[in-house]
Every structure is written in structure tokens, then in C-alpha cells.
Computed example of a mutant assay.
Amino acid sequence: MFRHRKARYKGLAKNTAQLFPLFGFANLMLACRWLLNVYTQGAS
């Protein structure tokens, strides 16, 4: 979804720096979906 590529051994620090924001964005998307479900179930 976020176009992450498999780690290469030349730039492990770069790959790690790329993964942290990807996991953060994934957590935000999951939280957004959860909040939308909570609000739509509470409205009906």
C-alpha cells in the first residue's frame, strides 16, 4: 500500500528510517477506520 521495498543490506539505516513513518501511517489509517466504525454504529 505504501510501496515499501524489501530491505537491502547497503542501507539498513535508510530502510529503518523509511519503515517507521510507514508503520505510523498504517496506525493512523487503522485508527481512522476504527473511529469511523464507532461513529457510524453510534449514529444509528
Rank of each mutant, 00 (worst) to 15 (best):
L28A: 09
K10V: 05
T16C: 08
L19V: 03
G11M: 02
L12I: 08
G11S: 11
M1F: 03
Y9S: 15
S44A: 13
G42C: 09
F2N: 03
P21V: 00
L12W: 13
K14G: 01
L19I: 03
K14Q: 13
L22E: 09
V38S: 03
Q41H: 12
A43H: 08
G24T: 07
G42M: 12
P21L: 00
T16I: 14
G24H: 09
P21G: 00
A26W: 07
R8T: 04
A43P: 00
K14E: 04
L35I: 12
L30V: 13
Y39H: 14
M29W: 13
L19T: 08
Q18D: 14
L19S: 02
L22S: 05
G42W: 04
A26S: 10
F23Q: 12
A43L: 10
L12M: 06
F2I: 08
R3F: 01
H4L: 09
L30T: 15
K6G: 09
L28F: 08
N27C: 06
V38E: 05
F23A: 14
H4E: 07
F2R: 05
P21M: 01
T16D: 11
R8F: 01
T40K: 14
L35E: 07
C32K: 14
K6L: 13
R5C: 01
A17Y: 00
N27M: 11
R5V: 00
Q18L: 11
G42F: 08
Q41G: 08
H4Q: 09
R33H: 03
M29F: 14
N27Y: 12
R8C: 01
L35M: 13
N37V: 01
L12T: 04
P21H: 00
T16Q: 09
T16K: 14
F25Q: 12
Q41V: 15
F25M: 15
F25S: 15
R3T: 01
M29T: 10
